[in-house]
């Protein structure tokens, strides 16, 4: 074939990019699966267990549950190793760049958002990770929580824009 060289090159590129693509998606599956399993094993999918951590008033009555602190410390420790290991690298294994949040400064949306999330978390004992993994167990009223959580996230996009416009004017 007269165009065999060109043809081979194209085929080769397609194959290597689809292998990278497959690895990229496999990483997402592996990471998500481990994340969900970790949420179950740590029992963070149990709202009552989370609320028993947040109930600092129970420390004096010996009824406090410090478990969540170990979950966070264990998770941060492992993640910190990977952050330090990749410090000198310019790209992850299966993408061309690391995707870091663009925002750096401590601003009003950060504080207001954290307060609103804190209220919802304190009311329910459910944060976004457990909300998703709980689908495997479908406790009563979970779909109400999930539906409103997605609605809140959707509406939040417009609140963010409103904050951005306000800051631009000010």
């Amino acid at each position: 074939m007269s165009n065999s060289i060109t043809h081979d090159n194209v085929t080769h590129d397609n194959v290597s990019s689809s292998v990278t693509n497959l690895a990229y998606l496999a990483v997402a599956v592996l990471s998500g699966g481990l994340f969900g399993a970790g949420l179950y094993i740590s029992q963070m999918i149990d709202p009552l267990k989370v609320l028993r951590f947040l109930d600092f008033g129970a420390i004096s009555q010996n009824g406090w549950d410090p478990s969540l602190a170990l979950v966070i410390i264990g998770a941060i420790a492992v993640m910190m190793v990977s952050v330090l290991l990749t410090k000198s690298r310019s790209a992850p294994l299966f993408d061309k760049q690391f995707h870091l949040p663009a925002l750096k400064q401590i601003d009003r949306p950060l504080i207001i958002g954290a307060v609103l999330f804190g209220i919802g978390w304190g009311m329910s004992g459910i944060c976004p990770g457990p909300a998703i993994t709980l689908v495997a167990f479908m406790p009563e009223n979970l779909l109400i929580f999930l539906g409103l959580m997605f609605l809140g996230s959707f509406l939040g996009t417009y609140v963010q824009k409103w904050f951005a416009n306000g800051d631009a004017i000010a």
Binding site: A23, F35, L70, G74, A77, V81, S82, L93, F94, F98
Partner: peptide, 19 residues
């Protein structure tokens, strides 16, 4: 809880190093 936390950390590390 510590084992679960380590798994969540590993999951986060895999997504960071891989993707």
């Amino acid at each position: 809880s510590l084992i679960g936390g380590l798994m969540i950390g590993l999951a986060s590390a895999i997504l960071w190093v891989g993707n």
